[in-house]
């Protein structure tokens, strides 16, 4: 349960740019690596609460999951990792091993937590709509 501290880092990182945009921020699009152990539901709640009183108040936090991709030094494979998928797990878990030759791999994506874009409503938008 560290979503509040992560949401706080997120808002802290976004505020300087958000304040300079001069419009209403209606959406924040976050990319979350598959290996990150963050609950989307708790992140959205924390974001809503912590954004109150800032220019991000009322903005919708949308979270997109980025799959684990790996690169293998042994056989040159680059791409998505295999997963253990089992009903007993209730969700799938990426395997940090080469899907082609089984060697150890380097992670390309899967641990990031990056804001991709903001959706902004300006006075021009309301005039044209």
């Amino acid at each position: 349960m560290h979503e509040y501290s992560v949401a706080s880092e997120l808002i802290h990182a976004l505020l300087p740019q958000a304040e300079s945009l001069g419009g209403k921020i209606v959406g924040v699009f976050l990319k979350k690596g598959e290996l990150r152990i963050l609950s989307n539901h708790a992140m959205v709640n924390a974001f809503e609460l912590l954004a109150e009183g800032t220019v991000l108040e009322g903005a919708q936090l949308e979270i997109e999951l980025i799959p684990v991709t790996v690169s293998c030094a042994s056989c040159g494979y680059k791409g998505e990792a295999d997963h253990v998928e089992d009903e007993a797990f209730h969700f799938s878990v990426p395997i940090l091993s080469c899907p082609t030759c089984g060697a150890e791999v380097d992670l390309i994506t899967g641990r990031e937590l990056v804001v991709d874009r903001l959706s902004v409503q300006t006075s021009e938008d309301s005039e044209t709509s």
Binding site: Q17, V26, R117
Partner: peptide
Amino acid sequence: MHNVSVNG
């Protein structure tokens, strides 16, 4: 409404 990319 428009989208603004963030420094990433």
